[in-house]
């Protein structure tokens, strides 16, 4: 009887590992192709010679250094903007009473369902009126007023005991120092969660950046990768794999090192 249960569970574990292997396979395969000569791209010989040539050619074929810089600037700029804008708005929604508050909050929630990603047509026209087409600021600006960030931080701020704010006020602290010295330090885990989700999102974002950029000096990694990986570019698969691994490596390494924080951040971001 008990043996039967054991048997079933062992079978389930086998299935779990099999699925895990299936899920890891594309990335493992890309690594195989990137570190071996092109001849071994679909010949799995353990004695195949290892090489870094593919990485060298990828780095030479496309301006990856520039793409990295662009993505880095984009991610930092967007996150910085989001943190400032969302902190102020979240504090307002958590602790202030004012006429129009409910309507304003409802309007914020609209963006949870309809993100700027689907509004590319009108946002392109707006960005071009602002003269920000083909700038890194133009890629990040539509995302800086983030409903998701406001919502997440507002929830966290509401958990902060009102007495702490009152005490700080008695000591003569203004709202800005209350915000910076009471609210922000007490809600650091929420900031970390939001930061991780935002950085991964904008590191990976493609549609809006491809619409709004048209030169090497502004293109982020994803857009660069799409040009580089296109069949017209005539680059072979080993080199494409190497380039792809290069582009994903910072985020991938960060994830493998801080797996728990990543999973928890994404989890927290979904539990509304």
């Amino acid at each position: 009887m008990i043996r039967g249960v054991d048997e079933g569970e062992r079978l389930e574990m086998l299935a779990a590992w099999l699925l895990a292997f299936l899920w890891a396979a594309p990335l493992l395969y890309a690594a195989w192709a990137a570190f071996h000569p092109m001849d071994f791209v679909s010949r799995f010989d353990l004695r195949a010679p290892l090489t870094l040539d593919n990485f060298r050619s990828a780095w030479k074929v496309a301006p990856f250094a520039r793409y990295f810089l662009n993505t880095f600037l984009l991610v930092c700029m967007t996150l910085a903007g989001q943190l400032i804008v969302c902190t102020l708005a979240a504090y307002c929604f958590a602790r202030f009473e004012f006429p129009g508050k409910n309507v304003a909050f409802l309007l914020v929630l609209v963006q949870i369902m309809i993100m700027p990603d689907v509004l590319i047509v009108q946002n392109y026209l707006t960005t071009s009126r602002l003269g920000l087409v083909d700038t890194i600021l133009g890629i990040g600006l539509p995302y800086m007023g983030s409903a998701f960030g406001i919502f997440l931080l507002r929830q966290a701020f509401k958990q902060v005991p009102q007495e702490l704010e009152d005490a700080a006020r008695v000591e003569g602290a203004g709202w800005l120092s209350i915000l910076l010295k009471v609210y922000v330090p007490l809600t650091r885990p929420t900031y970390l969660a939001y930061g991780l989700v935002s950085v991964s999102y904008h590191w990976n974002n493609f549609l809006w950046p491809v619409v709004i950029t048209n030169s090497t000096t502004t293109r982020p990694l994803t857009v660069g990768l799409s040009i580089f990986g296109a069949p017209e570019s005539g680059v072979n698969f080993s080199v494409i794999s190497a380039g792809t691994l290069l582009a994903v490596s910072p985020l991938l390494i960060a994830f493998l090192l801080f797996q728990r924080q990543f999973v928890q951040s994404f989890m927290r971001s979904g539990i509304k």
Partner: peptide, 19 residues
């Protein structure tokens, strides 16, 4: 196993489409 299941989430769609 958990890392294997979750990894595709943090990779850019463009990169995995290349593969």
């Amino acid at each position: 196993v958990r890392a294997a299941y979750f990894t595709p989430t943090i990779l850019p769609m463009i990169a995995v489409a290349n593969i």
